[in-house]
Nucleic acid binder design. Sequence first.
DNA 1: ACAAGTTCCGTTAACGTTTACGGTTCGGGC
DNA 2: GCCCGAACCGTAAACGTTAACGGAACTTGT
Lengths: 370, 370
Amino acid sequence: MGKPPTTLRDIARSLGTSIGTVHRALHDNPGVSAGTRAKVLETAKALGYRPNLAARYLSSKKTLRISVNTLQGTTSFWDEVRAGVREEAGSILLENVEMEFRTCPRLGEGEEAALEAAVREQVDGIIIFPSRPQSLRAAMRRAARAHIPLVCVATDAPNSGRLGIVAVDTLVSGSIAADLMGRFLGPRQGEIAITVFDMAITEHAEKYSAFESTLRSFYPNLRPLQPIEDHDDEQEAYEKCRKLFDEHPDLAGIYVTTEASMPVLKAAHDATLLDRLTIITTDLFPDLVPYIRSGGVVATMYQRPRAQGQMALRMLYEFLVEGGQRSNEVTLAPHLVMRGNLDFFLRRQSKESVSQSIREKSRELAEDFA
Amino acid sequence: MGKPPTTLRDIARSLGTSIGTVHRALHDNPGVSAGTRAKVLETAKALGYRPNLAARYLSSKKTLRISVNTLQGTTSFWDEVRAGVREEAGSILLENVEMEFRTCPRLGEGEEAALEAAVREQVDGIIIFPSRPQSLRAAMRRAARAHIPLVCVATDAPNSGRLGIVAVDTLVSGSIAADLMGRFLGPRQGEIAITVFDMAITEHAEKYSAFESTLRSFYPNLRPLQPIEDHDDEQEAYEKCRKLFDEHPDLAGIYVTTEASMPVLKAAHDATLLDRLTIITTDLFPDLVPYIRSGGVVATMYQRPRAQGQMALRMLYEFLVEGGQRSNEVTLAPHLVMRGNLDFFLRRQSKESVSQSIREKSRELAEDFA
DNA sequence: ACAAGTTCCGTTAACGTTTACGGTTCGGGC
DNA sequence: GCCCGAACCGTAAACGTTAACGGAACTTGT
């Protein structure tokens, strides 16, 4: 079965050379000729060499610095993401990660500067929310060229050289929202609206596309309208919704894919449509709770920010420490929250933060002694 | 900031003793007097000693043996659970776990023998599906007394001394099923049935309770019937359903909480009720797919077997290696699968198995050389 | 031709823990 | 008196990797 793994010494012995040379060859360090380097690489592969991470960490004791560049945010979404990152970092058994949080106050404000600061300070990896992917692309490319792996959360940045992406599965989200809308409304005719952040963002275009196509395939009685872009601007969202409500008197439902559900709800309320519309929202935060409880919001798609943070850190850490290419596109299925299970979700959230604080306490007390 | 962590040597120095003594004291090894042991423990706590896991593993090189006692199963559920366990084990960076799979052919058949075999062979930890908790309790207690930590998957075994439990959140599942049932059926009157495995199992009683109470609170037009117990027996499920359909002509919907949805569907088909009933099932497996696609099953609650396997192994490993008490009750929220997002879920499943095989390939090639 | 520098490579001391072995001291038994 | 075992404790060699140092051989400049 388990024959002992090959070590640096094995490689050295088999080549009649020394550990130091093998080490230098495997790490592209200077001080080794091209010929021997090639031979080392070859026999390393032949012997199936895999570095012993415990020994590596024990010897070098260098810690990985990871910058987490996210948003302050108006809801608790980003707090949860950061909590997930922290939690996952706390459960790494070799405690060789240091976290640096760089938080932008508002959408897109200073995110490029924050990224450049992280790159300048030579962090080992970056978790980033690219709120404006196209304007951040250049800076992300620079990071990639500096060999700093970069994982996107929540929103992808195509062609940016990023290592990976963690986000909610937009196709599942959009499609399930459409399915629910169709089933909730039953056979009756009507128009369905959808609000997105900006159709230029892949995720939002995909959500719309999945929503629209599912609706079209299975619920021909419901006609999807063109998406409304709110750009996360409360004023803009409110006004566009009022206009929408005026222009489409037979609107039956609306699917809010962004965090900005409050202005939509306010608009619906002001147009006295709150109880006539079937509203499906996104995410879960305190302001939304009463609407779900009262039925004004029939369902919300919880995007599991904590899980997103956890997965992002995990992906980055595994890359940094194992070097291998894991599956670098993680898409999470959303959780469905309705009034019946709302309390359970709120309980889960609070339990999680409690168990986390307990855990940190016990860390301080530090009673291992296994 | 980061002052260097305290080591065994630090403790020894501060007590004027030696590393060996400190080590023996911390591990309750013989050869150290009660007095010095107490002093060692005291100053270890005072200095905030935490063992360096990398050094520990490097030095001892002992691997943890973990037994996974599950079911063959009729659906792919348990295959997925095992895949999740394997996947998580593969991503442990210190590669110090060995897995032993003990799989029972049928429900409850030989599960006690399998557990005792694992205990006899002195494994370091066990992941188990206690299909009959009460008849397994004694054996589980023995395992606990032998200091073998034990994590339950899918079903809990109360008062068994188990370390932890990973399962789907039954309250969320039951409640969301009721909410969907209520919304799908709209204002019309009717009776709602629910099938469970056995009301003596906590999980199933909880699912029923959540289902029933949500239905009662929000949808008074729907009357929940007494639960049908199928004991995972296809014949029993079929016959009880036929009887149910005969006796309740105004049945509007049925929520199947067990894996045995096929006999229910067959019964509904044979009673020509398939298109008049609103059916919500549990889990996702090939035989179910055509029913979801055709709308015969309106929604299914996917219990995320792979995630359950992952979490179970993670919980056990963290306990074994860190010794600390983490949150030992993990409940996962189910994923909702409907015809619109069915393909995405099937795609996700296949992608996961693909990415896993890719990963194993790349492991073999073993090109670390970071 | 000799010093100085370069390039390549071997050696060795860490890192913190485990484990086996050797050494004290003490108390009894002959 | 001496020997023996038990109980306690110190020492040192591993584990596999990293990083620093030193040395040999070979090129260059004068």
